[in-house]
Each structure stands twice: as C-alpha cells, then as structure tokens.
Design a protein around this nucleic acid. Structure first.
Lengths: 109, 109
DNA sequence: CAATTATGTGACTACATACTCACATAGTAT
DNA sequence: ATACTATGTGAGTATGTAGTCACATAATTG
C-alpha cells in the first residue's frame, strides 16, 4: 500500500497537471513563454472571452504556475515556474510516439 | 490569433495532461514505472476499488499512455510511452520551487 | 466630478468526471 | 457443467469544471 506522504505528493502533482490540462490554459502558457502579458492581450491572442480568461489565469495562479503584477489598469501575468515548459516537451514527445500511428497529429507537431 | 493546427496540438496536449491529472492515475503510472501489473494488483497497491481502477486504466489507454496484454484471466497493463515519466520530473521541479514556501510539501518531495 | 477602460466575480447553465453498486463476460479449475 | 476469479460496463449519484452574462471594482483620462 502507498504511504501517506506519497499520496500527498500525488495529489499535489495532480493539482498542477489539472491546472494545465485545458487547451486554453496550454495556449496561455505557450503565449507567456515569450514574456509577460496582460489579460486583455491574452484574451485576444487565444480568442476567448476576458472573464473566462481571467478565471483560467486565477486557476493557474492558485496552482503556482503563474504570477502577476499590477501596472495601472492592467494586470500582467507571467510564468512563475518556467520549468513548467519542460512539461510540454514531455507531452510532445509522447505525442510524437503516437503520431507514428496518426497522420493528422503528425502534421500538427 | 492562434493558428488552427496549433489549436489542434493544444487540444491533444490537454488530452494527455487530463489523462494523468488525477491522484490515482499518477499513482498507477508511478507503480507501472517498475514494470507491468494486472488490474487486481494495481487496485490493491493504490487502495481503490477494482471497477474504479479499471475505468482509470481505460482512460489512460485511450489517451495513449498505457497499453495492455491479456494473460489468462488477467489483463496486464504497462506504460506505452515511458517518456511520460519525464512529466513527473517536470512537475516535481515545479513543486520543489513551490516547496521553498511550503514546509509540508518540502517533506513530501 | 463623469466617462472610460481593464479586470474580477456572483449566479447560472451545460457538461464532464470520479465513484459505487450490481451485474455481465470471459477464462480457469474441479 | 458448476463454481470461481479477474475484469469490464450500464446506471445512477455527487461533485467539479468551462463558459456566459451582468454587474462590481478600481485605475485612468478628460
């Protein structure tokens, strides 16, 4: 049986995974890898409503993935733990293996 | 605005992330990293009901993370893309950064 | 001050998910 | 064939999530 602190770790890992397991949120992280952005520009870039984006951002802040600073009217978000980008490499590696059996996926990577 | 095939990629990445974004499923992958296991032993190891485990397994098979073979009565699951393990390193790195501000988390890692 | 802009939030809807129970299926053993 | 074991699945419940709308808040500008 699994030990108690292992379970706690799995829960924490799941929290982080959950916080990025959504297409818009992945798009946001991918956008922010090139530098900080305000809610407004993020919403326009990913093509979603502002209030929706605002919620996605707050989820990722709670998960410790993003942080923000205020600048006048704007709130500017950035990656708090850029190591999260390594996650995408891993996922993309898995997708590449799957792509051997799937042409459409192959073209997208 | 984001291009169409980028969006498709984000969706695929989200699918994989979603497939592991659950404590039991992380426990399962962590268990399988040491070798293939049947549903029965997985259920006992993680301390969950068999039918529940069976569902978690089929989700991960659909996502392309796991594969299985049949051996008599038993169905034996294993990692299809062991590169998924890299994912945990990334997540754990992020947690380590967070752990600087959180003692309980620090002890679990 | 009033008007404008960027952001966040309460309330609601629609849908997805985890889980459990009872049962079906399929292989094994007697 | 009967009994047993491992696994999967339909149906149901409870909870979580994404998204939208209207509105509140807060900083900025005129």
């Amino acid at each position: 049986m699994i030990k108690q602190n292992k379970l706690f770790l799995y829960e924490k890992q799941a929290e982080i995974a959950k916080a990025i397991a959504q297409p818009y949120r992945i798009a946001i992280v991918d956008f922010l890898k090139d530098g900080e952005q305000c809610v407004c520009d993020i919403a326009e870039h990913i093509g979603a409503g502002r209030s929706n984006v605002s919620r996605h951002l707050s989820v990722m802040v709670s998960a410790g993935i993003l942080e923000y600073r205020k600048d006048g009217l704007k709130v500017i978000y950035s990656l708090k733990t850029p190591c999260i980008l390594g996650f995408f490499e891993c996922i993309t590696n898995c997708l590449k293996e799957q792509a051997k059996e799937n042409q459409k996926l192959f073209k997208a990577i």
